[in-house]
Amino acid sequence: MGPILFATLFAGLTLSSHLRRAYGNSSPPPPLRFTSNGTFQISVFEDLHFGENAWDTWGPQQDINTVKVMNQVLDAETQQLVVLNGDLITGENAYLENATVKIDQIVAPLLARGLTWASTYGNHDSQYNLSRHAILAREHRWPRHARTQQMVHGPDAGVSNYYLPVYPSTGNTDEPCLLLWFFDSRGGFHFQQRNASSGAHIGQPDWVDQSVVDWFEATNARLTAQYNRSSIPSLAFVHIPTNASQAAQMSPAGIDPRRQPGINDDAPNLAQQAQGWCEDGSNGPECVYGGQDAPFMRALASTKGLMAVFSGHDRGNTWCYKWDGVLLGMEVEGNGVNLCFGQHSGYGGYGNWGEGV
């Protein structure tokens, strides 16, 4: 098993109006809180890829094996939150009538232990027969446990863009000490949409949209001003990594196992946001990388207090890189934020690396 990623900070923030709107008349989950010894532990599951080839014996067996991994981790650790960081379902294999039923299998180990979770959605969670909105609705069947929300609306925003506050174990709950940011990097295909002439499925851009970047910057500024803080400690989760991760991998020093321990097998070219797109917004075989994730990278690099960004997607990478300065081929300057990959957790998807968190 890979290491469980956790933060040790001290906490607090009141429940946002977004949370009340997200859950309607249902009771939202109780506030996230640090433990009495000042720790807050997060188990991050990446690339679960449930639902592959349900019509064959090996597909359902993969899901059974993945549940075993989840059970082992959840029993071994004392997490206060579980993050499902994208590609929950292999949507290419989904049936339209019951595409989201795999969510029930994913969250069953969490519900059995009374745990709470928060999701981002990945490129395989948006397919012709699988909708991000449907996954969100399915998660909200358990309103006392699911914290996934949609705080940015619009046709191009994606779905899983939101933040969560964490409260102290006791004392003042009116001022934030930790924020958890979740971003939808989109990708995959638009739900039930085909090209009118060719009949082909219509691809969805695979980067964090500008509307989400604007929301992130404005919301973070509002929170720091509201609480008279120069910065608020925070962590971020997004399924597809930014180009900064690839630039780190391609830099002259590269990923050194002595300084950035972990697997680096998706090399030399990991799959970053805006991969396969041209600068003009078209996508085709001649397009390599369009640079549309630059606004998101600038927002991350300029956010004081942001300690780390956790991604999945590239299942053969598990390293962390301290992004400090300007990387090869880039103009955006890092501020020391750690760019981290989580261990892939599911038996589905490509590769034969060990499953973990």
Score class of each variant (00 low, 15 high):
2 G>N: 06
3 P>M: 06
4 I>W: 07
5 L>C: 08
7 A>L: 11
8 T>A: 13
11 A>Q: 03
14 T>W: 13
19 L>E: 12
21 R>C: 06
22 A>L: 08
25 N>F: 08
27 S>E: 14
34 F>W: 01
35 T>R: 14
40 F>V: 00
41 Q>R: 07
42 I>H: 01
43 S>I: 11
43 S>L: 15
44 V>F: 01
45 F>H: 10
51 G>W: 04
51 G>T: 00
53 N>Q: 11
53 N>H: 04
55 W>P: 00
57 T>G: 04
62 Q>W: 05
65 N>R: 12
69 V>Q: 04
71 N>I: 01
76 A>D: 10
79 Q>L: 09
87 D>L: 04
93 N>Y: 13
95 Y>G: 08
97 E>K: 13
99 A>S: 15
100 T>P: 04
106 I>H: 02
108 A>L: 15
112 A>Q: 14
113 R>N: 07
116 T>A: 13
124 H>V: 13
125 D>K: 07
126 S>C: 12
131 S>P: 00
132 R>W: 03
139 E>A: 08
139 E>H: 15
140 H>W: 13
141 R>Y: 05
142 W>H: 15
143 P>D: 13
145 H>S: 14
151 M>E: 04
152 V>Q: 02
153 H>W: 06
156 D>C: 08
157 A>F: 03
163 Y>E: 03
164 L>Y: 00
165 P>N: 11
171 G>P: 02
184 D>C: 04
188 G>F: 00
190 H>G: 01
197 S>C: 08
197 S>Y: 07
200 A>H: 10
200 A>E: 13
203 G>P: 12
206 D>S: 14
208 V>Y: 06
214 D>K: 09
215 W>S: 01
218 A>P: 01
227 Y>C: 05
229 R>Y: 05
231 S>Y: 14
240 I>Q: 07
241 P>S: 06
242 T>G: 09
244 A>P: 05
244 A>Y: 03
248 A>K: 02
253 A>K: 00
253 A>L: 01
253 A>N: 00
257 P>W: 01
268 P>Y: 04
269 N>V: 02
275 Q>L: 15
280 D>H: 15
281 G>D: 05
285 P>T: 12
288 V>C: 07
290 G>F: 09
297 M>T: 08
302 S>K: 10
306 L>Y: 08
309 V>R: 03
309 V>N: 03
314 D>M: 15
316 G>T: 03
316 G>R: 10
317 N>S: 12
323 W>K: 01
328 L>A: 11
333 E>N: 10
343 Q>K: 11
347 Y>H: 14
349 G>D: 05
353 W>Y: 12
354 G>H: 10
